[in-house]
Amino acid sequence: MTALPRRIIKETQRLMQEPVPGISAVPDDSNARYFHVIVTGPEDSPFEGGLFKLELFLPEDYPMSAPKVRFITKIYHPNIDRLGRICLDILKDKWSPALQIRTVLLSIQALLSAPNPDDPLANDVAELWKVNEAEAIRNAKEWTRRYAMDN
């Protein structure tokens, strides 16, 4: 295995020493570029009370290119598709090497607080979110309760 870049080591250490509220990220035993992540659903969002598992991978040229992130836990959200892929500009063309694992995960948590059905990835979800927001939010709450709760 090639040496792990120091920046990744430093980020991992900081994630442990100064954890971000509502977010945990742990490197995998066998691959220090692969992180197991839990993001808690933000308060006052339909995802409140949910514990969402994500996976995050730092590609070879990180931090020059963005981490690959996807949801593992099912989630009903207009900007997250059935495969858990996330539509977020900083994960694509707005990536900057000054962003970090923690800022990426905070942005994803913010996306849960502020769904944007006008720029959808999950088209059927976005459609309902636009025509009947109340029902969409009910669905999101139901999915959270059914799939993302701890008990």
Partner: peptide, 25 residues
């Protein structure tokens, strides 16, 4: 660290729990 390992175990437990409930993609 040990702390990390314990966090890893918690995450694995959550994963199994959610998988049983059909919550994993």
């Amino acid at each position: 660290s040990d702390e990390l390992r314990s966090l890893q175990r918690q995450m694995a437990a959550l994963f199994s729990h959610q998988k049983r409930r059909g919550g994993i993609i």
